[in-house]
Amino acid sequence: QGAEPLFFLDYFATGKLEAGIAEAVVAGIAEGCRQSGCALVGGETAEMPGMYPPGHYDLAGFVVGAVDRAKVLPRMGDMATGDVLIGIASSGPHSNGYSLIRRIVEREGLSYEAASPFSDGTLGEALLTPTRLYSAAALPLIKGSLINGLAHITGGGLTENTPRMCPDHLVPRIDRNSWTPGPVFQWLQEAGGVELDEMHRTFNMGIGMVFSVEPDMVEIVMNQLSLMGETPVVLGDLAPA
C-alpha cells in the first residue's frame, strides 16, 4: 500500500530453548529489518514445555509502516487501459507452495540432504533460499510517484495477486512468455507433472513484485530499477474487464 516500514516485533515460542536456535532466528529477523530499513524494537520469547516437540518452535511477527493517506496505493482512479505491468525477480518459491513442494520431493524419493537437481548445494538449501524483501526497490518509486499500484506475488501467484491492485473495470493481461521462470520452478513442474496454470496459481514463477506504471513512466521506472541492481521485465498491461 505504499507504506514505509518503521518497526518490527517478533514472537518466538518453543518447549525448551536450545542453544543457538533462538539466536539464529533473531539474527535472521534482524537482517530482514536491516534490508527493509526498519527497526527491530522488541519481541517475546516463550518456553512452554510439553507444547512443542524437541527441536520445534513457533514464530510470528508483525511490522508497522506509515504512509500519507493521500498517497496510499493502489491509486485506482489513476489506473487506465494500457498501463504497463513491470515485474522484478523472486529468489525462489519464497514462502508459498511448500505443501506441493514436499509432495513432489517425497514422490521423487529425494532427501533434502541430497544434491539439488537444479542448482548447486543440497536440495534443502536450494528450496529454502531466503525470501527477497522489496522495500528498498519499491520505496524510491513510491516516493517519486512513479507507480500507481503494487502487487506482492505470494500465495495464489500472479494469477490471483495481480488483480487485487486493479479497479473493477480493469484486469491484468500478462504474457507468460515475457520471462523465463527459474530452474526451481522448471524442475517442480517437470518432476511433479504440474499443469502450467496450476504452477501459476501456486508459485510466484520467478516474479516477486509487480508494479503498475503509466506508459510515459515505463522507461524511467525500468532505468531506476536497473540502477538498483534489478532486472525488470515488462510482463503485460492492463486491459478492460
Rank of each mutant, 00 (worst) to 15 (best):
L6D: 07
L6Y: 02
F7M: 10
A19H: 11
V26E: 10
S36D: 00
V41P: 01
G42H: 04
G43T: 05
E44R: 06
E47I: 05
E47Q: 12
Y57T: 00
D58N: 08
D58Y: 10
A70L: 04
L73Q: 05
R75V: 11
A80S: 13
G82L: 07
G92L: 13
S95L: 15
G97C: 14
L100S: 12
R102I: 08
V105Y: 14
E106Y: 10
E108V: 11
G109L: 09
L110K: 10
S116I: 06
D120R: 11
D120K: 12
D120C: 06
A126L: 05
L128D: 13
T129E: 15
A136Q: 02
A138W: 05
A138M: 10
I142P: 00
I142M: 02
S145N: 14
S145T: 04
L146D: 09
I147M: 01
N148F: 01
G156I: 03
G157E: 07
G157I: 08
L158M: 14
T159D: 09
N161H: 09
P163R: 04
P167V: 15
P167R: 06
P181N: 05
Q186A: 08
E190H: 07
A191L: 07
A191C: 08
A191N: 06
G193I: 03
G193V: 01
V194A: 13
L196D: 11
R201F: 00
T202W: 03
G206S: 09
G208H: 04
S212V: 15
V213R: 00
D216M: 13
E219C: 06
I220W: 07
E230G: 08
T231G: 11
V234W: 07
D237N: 09
A241E: 04
